[in-house]
């Protein structure tokens, strides 16, 4: 399994990778990108099985990134889960409308992250 983490904070990308391993995804290969543009390049050049993305990023932000993923026929089926400090209903609904299969607000525990990702991978919402 290949998991792409898109976040402008390198320490946050490292934290998410570590929590994912603790949550049971310890056999996965992890790719990282600091913004949506780099995330798209990664997704196009590797067989990505899951995307975890922040929203507020310089350059292409999480909303634009999700929209671009969904607009690309080769990438639109990749499950995406949003990880954000923004826990508001409006933002959740917007990201869901853009195709996010899961949404987790910071702070989060490894258990909460695992449950959200399992839901996303299982196609439940």
């Amino acid at each position: 399994m290949t998991i792409l983490i898109v976040d402008d904070s390198p320490v946050m990308r490292g934290f998410v990778r570590r929590v994912m391993r603790l949550a049971g995804f310890d056999q996965a290969e992890y790719l990282e990108a600091p913004d949506g543009t780099a995330g798209l390049e990664q997704a196009r050049s590797a067989a990505v099985d899951l995307v975890l993305t922040d929203i507020n990023m310089p350059g292409m932000d999480g909303e634009e990134f999700l929209a671009a993923l969904r607009a690309d026929e080769a990438l639109r089926s990749i499950p995406a889960v949003v990880i954000s400090t923004d826990a508001t209903r409006d933002r959740r609904e917007r990201m869901t409308a853009l195709g996010a299969r899961g949404y987790i607000a910071k702070p989060f525990s490894p258990e909460a992250l695992r449950e959200e990702i399992e839901r996303a991978l299982g196609g439940l919402s």
């Binding site: 904070s9 390198p10 320490v11 946050m12 507020n56 954000s84 400090t85 923004d86 826990a87 508001t88 209903r89 409006d90 933002r91 607000a105 910071k106 702070p107």
Partner: peptide, 30 residues
């Protein structure tokens, strides 16, 4: 450098979580 990056992340998370709690129906713009 790591200490400053993590401190910025901590402040970002705290601020976003406070605002989300105060106004769950409005977007957080940090």
């Amino acid at each position: 450098e790591q200490r400053e990056m993590v401190s910025r992340e901590l402040a970002n998370i705290l601020c976003g979580a406070v605002l989300s709690r105060l106004h769950p129906d409005q977007r957080v713009a940090l």
